[in-house]
Design a protein around this nucleic acid. Structure first.
Length: 442
RNA sequence: GUGGACGUAGCUCAGUGGUAGAGCCCCGGGUUGUGGUCCCGGCCGUCGUGGGUUCGAUCCCCAUCGUCCACCCCA
């Protein structure tokens, strides 16, 4: 299977095959439509940025920056990185293009991200995100609207069984205080922690709260809670967000242990999870990042955004089979003989012109009629057209319906219609018109 | 980075210490030019790679590469 001189794909970088593309297109089309309805504008930013951008935005001591970035030096000696997430680049673009100055922006983008992790279910080294950012809004109204957008999105995709978790991280100062309290608490119980959490204690003690180690649960439940450390303004912001979600009829769970992996978040954070994807259960998550823009040298601007894992949502779409099937061929043109092929090439063009929206497949590469009809059948076409030497000599084309009856038999004269070659496109158009609304795949 | 499972035909998978099989796919025929059902036939493998044990290895052992799942972390 893996012969030594075959070039192997790069680990964790997957091909999206035609059989999977219906789900991708369904997701992308739905997202475009919905983002348009919520007045977001698409933006496109580079896949490559200066390494320092991500270090400053995401945080020097996060796992993403410490060990997951695809970084390299280019020929000019610049330190560059394949983007591990989109927000940093989007914010950088706003600053670079002088788009802030108190202005508000609702923007989004979609594209590949790169993280050097060990692949597993729902996790890849090249993966795609739809990234949505609302810049210049203090919230919590925008927070609520953004969450409403995601809720509507699942609904449109036909996905259920997703759970919304929300939390507030407070301001940077509040979080610092809480972090100190948490560190103190776990330090007094240092010996009870497992190795992972002892390590987390130094880097990101909030992560200990998320531990899957069941023997730590009682220790964790005794830890100080973040909501007790919220500043008054953040607390009010969070309460108002909850009232708004209730007004919208959106069910949520407050999850005081929800902490995001990237350093730039503050106040509102949220995450949608599923139990249908194994260990990688986060399908969409994000939050407020009021301090990030100043941190990157822009003027102080409140902002909120989130990212959705396209592959994970696609997996859910595939599981529920909610994507509408992609169109298959409508007309298959069987042809035999050199002279007939020349005529058939332009007949196919005429058919495409006369029947916009219909898929016309010309049999290419020859083959006997038996093989051509087998291909016609597998193409899904409702109608086969036959142009052989005999038809060419007589100036006619055969129309053969392929799905009219359950027990359709070979060459029964009754099922085959003959029409003049010159008016064939009109005849075919008429044939489909008579059957409008009937997708008869009998 | 750590741990576990698994690599046999294009695909899904059987199999045995004596150098391999089925189904699907593809191609041809039954029907000198008519599909989907049926019948017949054909094509297809360095049994992931390298080494070791053995008279002999696809099978046992070691290494290596790859895939999957989980941890870590995250979308």
């Amino acid at each position: 299977m893996t012969s030594p001189n075959l070039i192997q794909p790069v680990r964790g970088m997957n091909d999206v095959l035609p059989t999977q593309i219906a789900a991708w297109q369904f997701l992308e089309a739905t997202a475009r439509e919905l983002l348009h309805a919520y007045a977001y504008a698409e933006m496109r930013v580079p896949l490559v940025e200066q390494t320092d951008l991500f270090k400053r935005a995401i945080g020097e001591y996060t796992d993403v920056v410490e060990k997951e970035m695809y970084s390299f030096e280019d020929k000019g000696g610049e330190r560059l990185t394949l983007r591990p997430e989109a927000t940093a680049g989007m914010v950088r673009a706003l600053i670079s293009n002088g788009m802030l100055r108190g202005a508000r922006h609702k923007i989004w983008c979609v594209g590949p991200m790169f993280r050097h992790e060990k692949p597993q279910q729902g996790r890849f080294r090249q993966f795609h995100q739809i990234d949505i950012e609302a810049i210049g809004f203090v919230g919590p109204d925008i927070d609520a609207e953004l969450i409403a957008l995601t809720t509507k999105f699942w609904h449109r995709l036909g996905l259920t069984n997703l759970t919304l978790h929300i939390n507030s991280l407070g301001t940077a100062e509040a979080r610092r205080e809480y972090r100190a309290a948490l560190t103190d608490y776990f330090r007094t119980h240092y010996a009870e922690l497992d190795a992972d959490s002892q390590r987390r204690l130094e880097g990101n003690p909030l992560r200990i709260l998320d531990s899957k180690n069941s023997s730590l649960q009682s220790l964790i439940s005794g830890a100080p809670l973040l909501p007790d450390y919220l500043d008054a303004e953040s607390a009010a912001h969070f309460v108002e967000l909850q009232r708004m979600l209730e007004a919208l009829g959106i069910a949520y769970q407050i999850n005081p242990r929800l902490v995001r992996g990237l350093d730039y978040y503050s106040r509102t954070v949220f995450e949608w999870t599923t139990d249908a994807l194994g260990a990688q259960d986060a399908v969409c998550s994000g939050g407020r990042y009021d301090g990030l823009i100043t941190q990157l040298g822009g003027e102080s601007t409140p902002a909120i955004g989130f990212a959705m894992g396209v592959e994970r949502v696609v997996a859910l779409i595939e599981q529920t089979a909610s994507a509408p099937p992609l169109g298959c061929a409508d007309i298959y043109l069987a042809v035999q003989g050199q002279a007939a092929v020349r005529v058939a090439l332009s007949l196919a063009e005429q058919l495409r012109a006369a029947l916009p929206g219909k898929r016309v497949e010309l049999n290419l590469g020859g083959g006997n009629f038996k093989a051509q009809f087998r291909r016609a059948d597998r193409s899904g076409a409702r109608l086969a057209l036959v142009l052989g030497e005999d038809e060419l000599n007589r100036g006619v084309v055969q129309l053969k319906p392929l799905r009219e009856t359950v027990e359709q038999l070979g060459t029964e004269a009754a099922t085959v219609i003959e029409t003049s070659l010159a008016t064939a496109p009109q005849t075919v158009a008429h044939w489909f018109k008579q059957r409008q609304g009937d997708h008869g795949r009998g």
